[in-house]
């Protein structure tokens, strides 16, 4: 640990420090935008990324289903139990169905899945591409006349855009099902009563809203992962740093986007 560096940081003008990190962040966002532009430009190169898409759909989507369903199941159970605890006496019990359904679809399904995949998929992409960067595999692609953006970034981002909504739909459904089973088993609630609650405030728009969110989270996690992977410097330490940054930054962006969509679309 370089203690000299740590010490001088405290002595620096805090405003200057804030200013510098704001500038750094702006520069990073600019470079991320550059990657997105390059991705759009590389889209027509189907001959390069076409063969790789299926593999990424499996890795980013299918392999993420277990963790997403695991989280959704427990969330559904806890929501049903807490709703019934909260409603005791004051509100009819079938409102449990309304609460579980509405919050799973609008918020917890997309956001918890998004955060879980930020950890699983984002870190994975950043570490893999970061390793390829520091071992010159990305340079090797260049010398073989493969556009690395077309070869590595396009299939991952496309897979994220396609598979995040799929995983979110599965997770949300599982969460609601878990809430329903909990209501049947542990609460004094019948299936028709749960369904009545579920339908009470439901609007088809809710589903579209959740899908829009999921697509934006898919873009965030995969593009941020690719960005930190591509810009990795140094050896193993640099790769670790990129993976951490990918998770932290994409989680923060997911939460900010979540608020943004709620403010603009609801």
């Amino acid at each position: 640990m370089n203690t000299r560096f740590l010490n001088t940081r405290f002595l620096q003008d805090p405003l200057q420090l804030v200013g510098r990190s704001a500038l750094d962040t702006t520069a990073q966002i600019g470079r991320w935008g550059g990657l997105i532009t390059a991705t759009l430009k590389a889209l027509p190169k189907v001959d390069i990324w076409g063969r790789l898409l299926v593999g990424q759909l499996a890795r980013i989507g299918v392999d993420s289903i277990p963790i997403a369903l695991f989280i959704a199941t427990f969330t559904g159970v806890v929501m049903a139990l807490q709703a019934s605890y909260t409603f005791t006496g004051a509100v009819p019990l079938y409102f449990v169905g309304a609460l579980v359904g509405k919050t799973m679809i609008l918020e917890l399904g997309p956001v918890l899945t998004g955060l879980a995949l930020a950890g699983r998929v984002g870190a994975n992409i950043a570490a893999e591409l970061g390793t390829m960067r520091v071992t010159e595999q990305i340079d090797a692609l260049e010398t073989l006349a493969y556009d690395p953006v077309a070869y590595l970034v396009v299939p991952r981002i496309l897979a994220g855009l396609v598979m995040f909504p799929v995983v979110v739909v599965l997770a949300t459904t599982t969460g609601i099902a878990a809430g329903w089973l909990t209501s049947l088993q542990l609460l004094d609630l019948s299936t028709p009563a749960f369904m009545k609650g579920l339908r009470l405030f439901f609007q088809p728009w809710d589903v579209q809203f959740a899908l829009i969110k999921s697509v934006s989270f898919g873009l965030t996690v995969t593009s941020v992962g690719c960005f930190f992977g591509f810009t990795t410097q140094g050896g193993a330490e640099g790769v670790g740093l990129s993976a951490t940054r990918a998770v932290v930054v994409s989680s923060m962006v997911i939460l900010a986007l979540d608020a943004f969509w709620a403010a603009t679309l609801l």
Partner: peptide, 29 residues
Amino acid sequence: YEVRRKVGYVFQFAALFDSLTVEENVGLG
């Protein structure tokens, strides 16, 4: 890329694609 097609580059540390087999590595170009 047009120019690079005419050039073969042997990297100091090989830079093989570690998710691909030797055959796929050599065949990629």
